[in-house]
Design a protein around this nucleic acid. Structure first.
Lengths: 236, 236
DNA sequence: GCGAATTTTTAGGCGCGCCTAAAAATCCGT
DNA sequence: ACGGATTTTTAGGCGCGCCTAAAAATTCGC
């Protein structure tokens, strides 16, 4: 009766913490050009820098991250593949929430953040099929395909566009809820046409060009490293 | 001991472990009449009895479980409400998987087991509305309504039906995947008409009565305490 | 009714992911 | 190029949910 059974381990969901690190590293390089250091990762993830170091070692041992003390973190090929898997799940869930479940494009991030770690491959595939294999999510972010391919359309970061530039919004980072809300309120969303009106120390003013005189504006913040959260198509 | 309160972190999803205990206790009393002891709970949940004791204390402190050393566990009113919440999520997810996502009724348990801990109230409500506020899931189990009400139709456990009894299957426990598979293979599912053909020491033979002479049979196991996993309507 | 069998609880550990504090390494301005 | 500022790593802990082993309580068989 007291036959020793194989020790069982706690399996919360998957390694959702590890997946979050991979996803965040990938995401950072998607939007920012500066290196991914422990402090950067720590502040975007809301954890202590020492926690990053610790996880970096673990991920490095697992062959997912290239880690050397005091150097920036990068993903290995395998790490990139895993990160894209998480991001695929995230973006398909966001798309599903908007297309079928009555969510608005700026409300879906948090829900997807949780579900991306618990949805099965089978259910994800069913959702993907139902949606007709979409290529991009409600924020305009490309959805990696099942085989890991990413089709991203050429675009320009708003912070790199000079005053006077006009273009179509193709992508808005889903990371900052309050920004999404203010953009949504200002009528700016993926596919909106915008013009860069002025550029100040820490912000860029954008004006919607929809109905000619309808000059609603919105302040789009730019990070310290000079990056914004919006990509526009290099139209005109 | 510690006077200062530095922000605590680590919140996996909710207290999914606690929710599992509540759900399992509730579920047990739904199907079985014997008391819920630590050993019973330990074996159905696949954990050590000592883990149950530990969690029982925690849940008791939280006012969800009535616990006294060496006595069976019962749920408090609050505990019942919380358990029904989890079960509502579980069963709505199962229903959704079958009705909209192309799953078969015997395949949905594991997926729901995971998602029930991560789905938000809002998304759950959206699913509930899409499905038209169903009263029961694909296994015939009643879905508690948002306010905690449960409408269960009067039924009879197969183990309590005498030989010769005929009735309609109204509920099949979703706990045992292999049983579900064999029942599905034997053509037995909710709404199937069955007749108790014989009753042996540890099993009950059931015959489908669908097309008169089509006498497919299935062996339905009965637990040590004399309970089966199927309820039939007390028809005829 | 009593000792044996069984169940339950207690005691002590473990891995995970996180933390703080302090030490070590790197970076940067003059 | 040097020393202070900053970043990163190390060291040591914590809570959670689980485990095993052993002690304590209860239950069962005769």
């Amino acid at each position: 009766m007291s036959i020793p059974e194989p020790a069982r381990r706690t399996q919360p969901n998957a390694d959702s913490a590890a997946e979050d690190y991979l996803k965040t590293i990938y995401h950072h390089t998607e939007w920012q050009s500066d290196p991914v250091t422990p402090s950067v990762l720590a502040s975007t993830m809301g954890v202590a820098p020492s926690s990053v170091t610790e996880m970096a070692k673990k991920l490095s041992a697992a062959g997912l991250v290239n880690y050397e003390p005091y150097k920036p973190l990068t993903l290995t090929a395998e790490g990139i593949a895993r990160a894209r898997g998480v991001i695929r799940r995230h973006r398909l869930i966001e798309t599903w929430l908007v297309d079928e479940m009555g969510y608005d494009w700026h409300e879906v991030h948090d829900e997807a953040e949780v579900l991306e770690h618990s949805i099965s491959e089978r259910l994800l595939d069913a959702i993907d099929a139902r949606l007709g294999h979409p290529r991009s999510d409600p924020h305009g972010d490309p959805i990696p395909s099942a085989d890991g391919t990413v089709h991203s359309s050429p675009a320009l970061l708003l912070s790199q566009a000079g005053v006077g530039t006009t273009g179509t919004v193709v992508r808005i980072s889903d990371r900052d809820p309050s920004l999404l809300l203010s953009l949504a309120a200002g009528g700016i969303r993926p596919s909106t046409t915008v013009t860069v009106v002025s550029q100040e120390a820490e912000g860029v003013v954008v004006v919607r060009a929809g109905s000619a005189t309808d000059a609603t504006g919105a302040l789009v913040p730019v990070t310290a490293s000079g990056t914004s959260s919006i990509w526009i198509s290099s139209a005109i």
